[in-house]
């Protein structure tokens, strides 16, 4: 029941987001026709009219939205103005690249962040706690692109440990790229996104874990002679891992933003980089499609977080 309600809400939010995206594109001063015409001055007024009808621009905004949304649902994202190929073809390959980047960083930042947060809570007040807190506190307001630049400067330019950009060595055919080479080129962007993502989980986990350690049930656990490790394993982990996972799913939004920046700095051929290129090049269909896809992803991430909570927590399940 609870799950059904949350799912419905998430779906309405996704629809809401698509309306908002469409409205912004629709009411923007850069209407697609003008943009198209300006790129091709030889078009006659009749041709422009024909184009308008083809794109449904002669109809009202609501009708246009439904035409647009319907096409999106069918996976027909239109044709890219920059690349003159179907948007779906461009996105397909890029999507996997971004998925690899974000997936690895998401897991790494979650695991490392949780570990650091828990450690800081158990060592609260000690040096290790102070170091971890200070580190996270600074990282929370560090822009991903600046961290990317610093990592690139130090690890790639100064120490030549990693390549400066791209997902594969330049001039090598895609089929000939080895797995090791891919990993090699994935390293810096992953590092950037993971490090940026750690701070959030760490600070949250530390706070949650400190609450748990101050709770009466941990007091009781200690009174029964449980060791620190036993307290962590029996009570701390159980009560803190769920909020951390929820938080990590809710972090999808920031993750997408971070990947746009990291992909831009390292010229990593993923969705984020494509979004920037499409935006700067005025490629409305491509831009809109990526915005929509990332939005759907983020809302689904939040939904998954909600559902996980409902399933795992016996108190919510009992409602």
């Amino acid at each position: 029941m609870v799950i059904a309600l949350r799912t419905v809400r998430a779906l309405t939010l996704i629809v809401g987001m698509s309306v908002l995206t469409f409205a912004l594109m629709h009411f923007s001063p850069l209407d697609p026709i003008t943009r198209y015409v300006s790129s091709d001055p030889r078009m006659s007024p009749e041709q422009i009219e024909k184009l308008k009808i083809r794109w449904g621009l002669d109809k009202g905004p609501v009708e246009q939205y439904f035409i647009w949304a319907g096409a999106m649902l069918r996976g027909d994202f239109g044709t890219s103005r920059l690349y003159r190929t179907p948007v779906s073809d461009i996105i397909k390959g890029r999507f996997l690249m971004s998925l690899a980047l974000m997936g690895v960083s998401w897991v790494l930042s979650g695991v490392i962040g949780y570990g650091l947060g828990a450690l800081a809570a158990f060592k609260r007040g000690k040096t290790s706690d102070k170091v971890i807190r200070w580190f996270s506190y600074v990282l929370v307001s560090t822009p991903a692109f600046w961290l990317a630049l610093i990592l690139m400067l130090v690890l790639a330019v100064w120490f030549h440990l990693f390549p400066v950009g791209l997902a594969a060595p330049a001039g090598v055919l895609d089929a000939n790229v080895t797995f090791a080479q891919r990993l090699w080129h994935l390293a810096l962007p992953v590092m950037t996104l993971s490090v940026i993502g750690i701070a959030n989980v760490t600070l949250h986990t530390r706070e949650k874990m400190v609450d748990i350690l101050n709770s009466e049930y941990v007091l009781f656990a200690k009174a029964r002679g449980e060791s620190s490790w036993s307290v962590f394993w029996n009570h701390g982990f159980r009560n803190s891992v769920l909020p951390a996972i929820t938080l990590q799913f809710a972090y999808f939004s920031e993750l997408f933003g971070g990947s746009v920046l990291a992909e831009d700095v390292f010229s990593y051929p993923g969705l984020g980089n494509m979004l920037t290129v499409a935006g700067l090049g005025g490629d409305l269909p491509l831009f809109g499609a990526i915005v929509l896809i990332s939005g759907v992803f983020v809302f689904l991430g939040n939904l998954v977080a909600d559902i996980v909570c409902v399933i795992v927590d016996p108190r919510i399940r009992a409602l």
């Binding site: 709770s215 009466e216 049930y217 009781f220 009174a223 002679g225 029996n234 108190r315």
Partner: peptide, 29 residues
């Protein structure tokens, strides 16, 4: 000594871990 020779009986449900089945809590140790 605590949990072995010295036992503590607390006052409320808050002293039990809310996410752990009570049978498991009694098995700890």
């Amino acid at each position: 000594l605590r949990g072995k020779e010295i036992a503590f009986i607390p006052q409320s449900v808050n002293f039990l871990d809310p996410l752990l089945r009570v049978g498991k809590q009694a098995r700890i140790g």
